[in-house]
Simulated scan of single mutants.
Amino acid sequence: MDSVPTASASDVVICSAKGCRVPAVWVLAWNNPKLHTPERRKTWVACDEHREHLSRFLDLRGFLKDVVTLAEWERSAADR
């Protein structure tokens, strides 16, 4: 799995939407089956405003695998 930058007190994860500078609260895990092995996960992060738009973009292409909160993603990464 690809990693999402973790946020520390001075480091904020910013939404992946073009031009957005808002802190991300969602992780969109995706995979392009023409390029990646089935278990590989690429990630985009999204703020509340852009989560649906970015999810829809990935889902229409058959790439979207999972959407979880950034906090959940970081907890699962810490458990690995």
Rank of each mutant, 00 (worst) to 15 (best):
M1L: 12
M1W: 05
D2F: 09
D2L: 11
D2P: 02
D2G: 07
D2A: 15
S3L: 14
V4R: 12
V4D: 07
V4M: 12
V4A: 15
A7L: 03
A7H: 03
S8R: 12
S8C: 08
A9R: 14
A9S: 13
S10M: 08
S10R: 15
D11H: 15
V12E: 11
V12S: 11
V12G: 01
V12K: 13
V13N: 05
V13Q: 07
V13L: 13
I14N: 04
I14M: 09
C15K: 00
S16N: 10
S16Y: 04
S16E: 05
A17P: 00
K18N: 09
K18D: 11
G19E: 05
G19M: 05
G19D: 02
R21V: 08
R21W: 00
V22A: 09
V22T: 14
P23L: 07
A24K: 04
V25K: 08
W26F: 14
W26Y: 15
W26A: 03
L28P: 05
L28I: 13
A29S: 15
A29I: 02
W30S: 11
W30P: 04
W30T: 01
N31W: 08
N31R: 15
N32T: 06
K34Q: 14
L35G: 07
H36V: 00
T37I: 06
P38S: 13
P38D: 11
P38N: 06
E39C: 03
E39H: 12
R40F: 10
R40S: 11
R40K: 10
R40D: 10
R41K: 11
R41V: 03
T43D: 01
T43V: 14
T43Y: 06
V45I: 08
V45L: 02
A46N: 03
A46Q: 03
A46P: 01
C47S: 10
C47Q: 11
D48A: 10
H50Q: 01
R51T: 04
R51N: 03
H53V: 05
L54F: 02
S55L: 06
S55Y: 00
S55V: 06
R56E: 14
R56C: 08
R56D: 15
R56Q: 13
F57M: 14
F57R: 14
L58E: 04
L58D: 03
L58Q: 12
D59N: 15
L60I: 02
L60G: 14
R61W: 05
R61S: 12
R61Y: 06
R61P: 00
G62N: 12
G62A: 13
G62T: 08
F63N: 10
L64S: 08
L64M: 09
L64Y: 07
L64C: 07
L64G: 07
K65S: 02
K65N: 03
D66Y: 07
V67Q: 10
V68M: 11
V68Y: 01
V68C: 11
V68F: 05
T69L: 09
T69H: 05
T69G: 11
T69V: 10
T69E: 06
T69Y: 10
L70F: 05
A71C: 00
A71H: 07
A71E: 15
E72H: 07
E72T: 13
W73R: 10
E74H: 09
E74V: 04
E74R: 02
R75L: 04
R75G: 00
R75F: 00
R75W: 00
R75M: 04
S76C: 08
S76P: 00
A78C: 06
A78L: 13
A78G: 11
D79N: 14
